[in-house]
């Protein structure tokens, strides 16, 4: 699981400018790719940008 900013925009953050928001979204997807490449055995949180 990758935690995001809020219910109405799981892959965005309207508080950011357009470029920053897209960078944030990209980071979320990159973190998701890291998560599916990692072996887990229990519910595991992958914070965006952290290992």
């Amino acid at each position: 699981m990758v935690p995001t900013k809020g219910i109405p925009y799981p892959a965005g953050d309207p508080a950011l400018g357009p470029d920053e928001e897209k960078a944030w979204r990209r980071l979320l997807v990159q973190t998701a790719l890291k998560a599916v490449s990692t072996a887990v055995h229990v519910p595991t949180v992958f914070k965006p940008g952290e290992n």
Partner: peptide
């Protein structure tokens, strides 16, 4: 129906991150 969709509808990539997935 559970949240205001105004922000999502202004940029649906906020719901489904297709734009950055394509980039990647």
């Amino acid at each position: 129906g559970g949240f205001s969709t105004v922000i999502a509808n202004a940029d649906p990539n906020r719901i489904l991150p297709l734009d950055v997935a394509r980039e990647l």
